[in-house]
């Protein structure tokens, strides 16, 4: 069966002044696919997501979502930023509801959705607290919850679990897989952690050093939940590590 293409990246280039960050990137992401992007530090992963969400204009080439120019107004997408990005002036529950309010959803739905996410993220105790009162890990849960609450078609995650403690990280890895499976979302997940990429993704895109191109596209056919000790898992993990080390 032919899979529908969700995101299409055509000859994408981005420079900041003289600095070439992305060069001639060409690939696509299928609808409902879980893609991880790995690459050396500072190679342009965040820049790439910023163009997917239309925060940055490409220097040349284009990014299409469902065949149209990417736009947060038109497409239901959520973006989890690399840096802490909870709103300090809103309580936990209002932070989580923010995206829904911005899109003028019905209050009843917002409440229902917020309650569900608070429960999912284990934030019940902190409902009325401000992000500044919580640990980095808990603050990141707010941000993740705020993105999940949108039920986005396209979920863009930029090293979302980088700051989290190991236990929360494992829990949320399984959780993002569960949400992805249950609601058939398209997920683009950036990570530094190769094991994490192999644990999650259906396909891993390996980027080269600056200026970044897609060096390789590694499909992973193992079923979820994956076993990190499975020989095939270990083989893929080592392979990707090799490909990155090469640079």
């Amino acid at each position: 069966m032919e899979r529908k293409i969700k995101v299409k990246v055509e000859d994408l280039c981005k420079s900041f002044g003289d600095l070439k960050v992305l060069e001639d990137c060409n690939f696509h992401i299928y609808d409902g696919e879980f893609v991880c992007v790995v690459g050396p530090t500072g190679c342009g992963k965040t820049t790439f997501l910023n163009m997917l969400s239309n925060l940055l204009e490409p220097t040349s080439g284009r990014v299409l979502i469902d065949g149209e120019k990417a736009s947060p107004q038109k497409h239901n997408l959520s973006f989890i930023f690399q840096e802490p990005s909870a709103f300090p002036w809103l309580t936990v529950e209002k932070n989580i509801a923010y995206g829904l309010r911005a899109k003028n959803k019905d209050e009843g739905y917002i409440k229902e959705q917020t309650d569900r996410i608070i429960d999912l993220m284990g934030l019940e105790k902190y409902r009325k607290a401000y992000p500044g009162e919580l640990s980095t890990s808990a603050e990141q849960k707010i941000v993740i919850g705020r993105a999940f609450a949108m039920d986005p078609d396209l979920l863009l995650m930029d090293e979302p679990y980088g700051q989290m403690d190991v236990k929360t990280r494992f829990y949320l890895q399984d959780e993002v897989i569960r949400i992805w499976k249950e609601y058939q979302k398209t997920v683009v997940f950036i990570t530094h952690n190769i094991e994490e990429a192999v644990y999650l993704a259906e396909r891993v895109l390996i980027l080269t050093n600056k200026p970044a191109r897609v060096k390789e596209d590694v499909p992973i056919h193992l079923p979820h939940p994956r076993d990190i000790n499975d020989p095939e898992f270990v083989r893929i993990r080592n392979y990707i590590t090799e490909q990155i080390k090469w640079w």
């Binding site: 239309n54 947060p72 107004q73 802490p84 990005s85 911005a102 899109k103």
Partner: peptide, 16 residues
């Protein structure tokens, strides 16, 4: 800027 970007990717208008 990060807070402004968050609102933008949620599709917030300039006024919002």
């Amino acid at each position: 800027q990060i807070n402004i970007d968050v609102a933008r990717v949620f599709g917030a208008s300039q006024f919002q």
